[in-house]
């Protein structure tokens, strides 16, 4: 009976893994096949020569270049805004807070993680109206407002990722540096955080993915269909997820729909580049800390 049970669990594990891998391959393959006919420089740069767009910053019409740039700026700004607060709060929860306060804050961040992105988008939109009315009439839905709203959306991933990575460290490790005369902050930043880098990086990667794919937030807070490359943080912008949503719901001919699939493939590539960059940065940081 025990052997049969073990075999059943093993088989179920294999089936689950194969199903998930198969799903990913199917989705990526589907997008790749559908977008193959439009995979050309024109998909990205439209009628503008690529070198003109890249070196001379020439305006691109009818291509995805502004949306790619907008997505990069958006993700980097949002994660850049969220990272210091997410790390700080995660470290506080793992190593400083205790008792009722810790339980209360943990629950609060779990609730925050469950807030639908459309609600966060509406909050960002309301914030824009409030700031426009009471702070400056120059404030409109913009890259900054979108990035702020996305930062708010991904904060729980960063906080809980950091907290769990630190809390999962063995207790013996926590005592090494204090036994050598390290202060609490030295212990946290010289030993515990470097050791928990892999776990923390997991939260960062999740945040990057979430920022790159979310449409509900940006369509209410600053993304428009034809803004060009973002000129400033207070300007409107284009973004790939918004373009995909827009083109797939309002396409006029099959060619436009294919462009939507092409944009989806490019969004996957943008995510891969951002994830690879953050992994490389994490490894460089780890190597610097560990010194071999």
């Amino acid at each position: 009976m025990r052997v049969a049970g073990q075999r059943a669990i093993t088989a179920w594990s294999w089936i689950s893994s194969l199903l998930l891998t198969g799903s990913v391959v199917t989705v990526v393959g589907f997008v790749l096949i559908k977008s193959l006919p439009v995979l050309h420089w024109r998909l990205i740069f439209g009628r503008t020569p690529p070198l003109e767009a890249l070196w001379r910053w020439a305006p691109v019409t009818g291509g995805l270049w502004p949306a790619i740039g907008g997505t990069f700026f958006l993700v980097i700004t949002a994660v850049g805004l969220a990272l210091p607060f997410g790390l700080g709060a995660g470290i506080y929860l793992a190593d400083c807070a205790d008792g009722r306060l810790k339980r209360g804050l943990t629950l609060l961040f779990d609730v925050l993680a469950g807030v639908p992105s459309i609600v966060v988008g509406l909050f960002g939109f309301s914030l824009t109206i409030f700031l426009h009315r009471y702070l400056s009439a120059r404030i409109y839905p913009s890259l900054l407002i979108s990035a702020l709203a996305l930062a708010f959306l991904v904060l729980p991933y960063l906080i809980r990722g950091t907290q769990e990575a630190l809390e999962n460290l063995p207790n013996a490790l926590r005592l090494i540096a204090p036994a050598l005369g390290a202060t609490r902050m030295q212990n946290i930043f010289r030993v515990l955080v470097p050791k928990a880098l892999d776990g923390i990086a997991g939260g960062v990667l999740l945040s990057i993915g979430r920022c790159a794919e979310d449409t509900a937030v940006i369509m209410l807070t600053g993304a428009v269909a034809s803004a060009g490359l973002p000129k400033s943080l207070l300007g409107s912008f284009e973004a790939l997820p918004f373009y995909i949503y827009y083109i797939s719901s309002q396409y006029r001919d099959p060619q436009e729909l294919q462009q939507g699939y092409g944009a989806a493939l490019i969004l996957l590539l943008v995510c891969a580049v951002l994830l690879a960059t953050s992994l490389i940065l994490k490894n460089l940081l780890a190597r610097r800390v560990r010194g071999w």
């Binding site: 540096a177 050598l180 005369g181 470097p194 560990r290 010194g291 071999w292």
Partner: peptide, 14 residues
């Protein structure tokens, strides 16, 4: 989790 050298020099770093 660092090099032999950095381990021994760690108290000085602190």
């Amino acid at each position: 989790p660092m090099s032999i050298y950095k381990n021994v020099a760690f108290p000085l770093k602190l």
